[in-house]
């Protein structure tokens, strides 16, 4: 009898066991995702770096060169692989579409959390989320049949270029940014708003000075995910951007992004050939640039937080 009680007292309680099990299981899942992430990064780096050590492409030339034809070699015998036009276009398209989409996402977010009636909320939210489910091809097709002719008639030229790509991306990233912004704004405790109003602030002042500040990290995460999608989007952009590997001269001159080039070429090249390696290098650049954006945004968030305090 005593031994039994002793055993019960000394052995961990049910809650402790659960706690341990929960911690272990969640740790395993987290570890799994980390391993997966590393696997993909190593996979891409392994293929992407071959261009530089196996095919003798100079990294600097790769980043700044403007001629892209990896199947042929230049006068030094290096493959012609200058990715600058695509890098520039990818950055421009991503930044500009985020710049246009963010104010609208913020406006909708604020409207839904601060002004709208419950009913309006119930209609608005699913409607916006609906937009993530439309396949890229359909966006691309709409862009091609509606936006491109519109651009052509307004600005001349062929109508293909960065501007229609930005507009198409606007619709594709708006739902992501909006939904996540709404969640970020909702997470701000009501007491913050009440305190601001009690101090005599107008509704706008409480939103602008308090709610936005408090929700800033969440809003930035939302923007990162929106930009990520813009960055990685290929099929829709490809249909409206024109796919010429030229430096963009203006917003309606045909050009090409990293992803559109990657997507349209990868199936036509042979694994292990220079052309294929060069495309994986584009994927690597993509990865590095999104890393850069990410770090940048985290840095800004930190600063914003400090100023807010």
């Amino acid at each position: 009898m005593d031994a039994d009680i002793k055993k019960r007292l000394l052995s961990p309680s049910k809650a402790t066991k659960q706690e341990r099990r929960g911690k272990t299981v969640t740790f395993i899942t987290a570890a799994f995702i980390i391993v997966l992430t590393f696997a993909i990064i190593v996979f891409i780096a392994n293929l992407g770096l071959r261009t530089f050590y196996k095919d003798n492409v100079n990294i600097w030339e790769f980043l700044t060169g403007t001629a892209w034809n990896p199947g042929e070699v230049d006068s030094h015998g290096h493959p012609i692989a200058g990715a600058a036009p695509m890098i520039v276009t990818s950055i421009l398209v991503t930044l500009l579409s985020a710049v246009i989409a963010t104010p609208f996402a913020l406006a909708i977010g604020v409207y839904m959390t601060e002004y709208a009636s419950k009913r309006q909320r119930q209609i608005l939210r699913p409607m916006i989320e609906l937009f993530t489910g439309i396949p890229s091809v359909v966006y691309g097709f709409l862009g091609l049949t509606i936006l491109v002719p519109l651009m052509r008639n307004t600005f001349g030229g062929t109508g293909f270029g960065i501007l229609p790509a930005i507009l198409v991306l606007f619709f594709m990233i708006l739902p992501t940014i909006t939904s996540m912004t709404v969640d970020a704004l909702k997470a701000v405790p009501v007491s913050f708003r009440q305190a601001a109003l009690a101090l005599g602030a107008t509704k706008w002042q409480s939103i602008y000075k308090i709610v936005f500040r408090a929700a800033l990290p969440g809003i930035f995460t939302a923007i990162i995910f929106g930009m990520s999608r813009a960055f990685g989007e290929a099929l829709a952009v490809q249909m409206v951007i024109g796919n010429s590997i030229l430096m963009p001269e203006n917003l309606v001159s045909p050009t090409s992004t990293l992803t559109s080039q990657l997507t349209s070429q990868i199936g036509n090249t042979i694994m292990g050939s220079v052309q294929n390696d060069a495309l994986w290098s584009l994927a690597l650049i993509l990865l590095l640039m999104s890393l850069f954006f990410n770090v940048l945004v985290r840095f800004i968030t930190k600063k914003g937080k400090m100023n807010g305090r």
Partner: peptide
């Protein structure tokens, strides 16, 4: 950060 950049990979690469 790693997990977030994973989400920006173009679908074709994945």
């Amino acid at each position: 950060t790693l997990i977030e950049i994973l989400s920006s990979l173009p679908s074709i690469v994945v």
